[in-house]
Simulated assay, not measured.
Amino acid sequence: MTNQTKISAIINLWKEDKKQYVKKSSLSAYQLLIDNHLLPIFGNKHEVVETEVQDFVFTKLDEGLSQKTIKDILIVLKMILKFGMKNKLIDYHQFDIKFPTERENNGIEVLSKANQKKIMNYAQEHFTFKNLGIYICLSAGIRIGEICALTWEDIDTETGVIHINKTIQRIYIIEDCDRHTELILDSPKTKNSIRDIPMSRDLQKMLKPIKKVVNSSFYILTNDIKPTEPRTYRNYYKRLMKELNMPELKFHGLRHSFATRCIESNCDYKTVSVILGHSNISTTLNLYVHPNMEQKKKCIDQMFRCLK
């Protein structure tokens, strides 16, 4: 097929089509990847060939991007090219891209048990609504956007359940020549993220008297009608960790710490996956289930006992 349609034009048509089906936040994420990575390299081209994509991958690796980020960019590129092919704007031949073997596995960042106890004790002894949020994250494994969106009506202290059904995030908006960011309150990206999480007895005991006197429509972190946004709360968390002489740990490390404690306590993997709101159990297994030598030895011993 001989065609003079530029990739940039196909991208614009693809975005208009995509608007009908995806959330504003998803479109915003696509837009960032397109503007920062795809348009500068492929925008003025009339076709995309495998060798160019492979060179693009190596360049991005050299720039310090992670393999996961690059794979996310390629997913968007493939969606655009398939859309172009479907609408007879471009020829598209599936490409097979190679990535270097990742020799290092840095693992996930988690708090030690001692440090987790220290933070939870501090939050109890120095009560503020922001400290309460950190205690909830360590007790329930919820994400930063979910804790920022949590209101008192989502807390049922009688049944001891936290209802997770919304998230807050700041997204990047491009409308014609106007570029700005917006703070949006939305439902979680996947249906699995809408979930009910049981409270620990300590958390339920802490929340019960507070729930009786607060406005149920107020956000927990502010105890006000207005929420705090994830970036602001993340900055507060960083200052608190520094104040408590804690190791540098991303906010998401609180969620990792919760999940790791669950796995260490021999909780059922499927149950942990549902509590975390993962779309499938393999995500949970890949992130948190890494048997140590003692567990592997126990497995071998059990197998040979069965043989006998």
Rank of each mutant, 00 (worst) to 15 (best):
V53H: 04
Y288S: 00
I119M: 11
A123K: 02
L276Q: 10
M199L: 15
I73K: 02
D72C: 12
K24L: 14
E175D: 14
Q31Y: 10
I162C: 05
K24S: 08
K166W: 01
G64F: 12
G277W: 11
T5P: 01
V289N: 06
I41T: 13
V272Y: 01
Y288N: 00
S66E: 11
V161E: 10
V49Q: 15
F56E: 08
T159I: 05
P291D: 02
C137N: 01
H278L: 03
E16C: 03
V214F: 10
F129W: 06
Y135F: 15
I197S: 09
K242F: 03
S25E: 11
H252E: 06
K166G: 06
G160Y: 05
L38N: 02
H163L: 14
E182T: 05
I70S: 10
K297C: 02
M206R: 12
L244F: 05
E294V: 01
E109D: 10
Y269N: 06
L77S: 13
V289E: 03
V48L: 09
K166A: 09
N131K: 04
T5E: 11
I70A: 05
L276W: 11
E243M: 14
E294N: 08
F42C: 00
K60Q: 15
M85W: 02
N235G: 15
K270L: 11
M1N: 04
N115D: 15
M241D: 03
D17L: 08
L89R: 00
L77C: 13
W14F: 15
K6F: 09
I75N: 06
Y269C: 01
V22G: 07
T101Y: 13
K189Q: 10
I75R: 09
F56K: 10
E47K: 12
N165C: 15
R103L: 13
Q116H: 06
T51K: 13
D35S: 12
L32Y: 11
D156E: 05
E109W: 03
I174D: 10
N286A: 13
K15Q: 14
I136R: 07
N286E: 13
Y122I: 05
I7V: 14
M206Y: 12
S28C: 11
L33N: 10
Y288V: 02
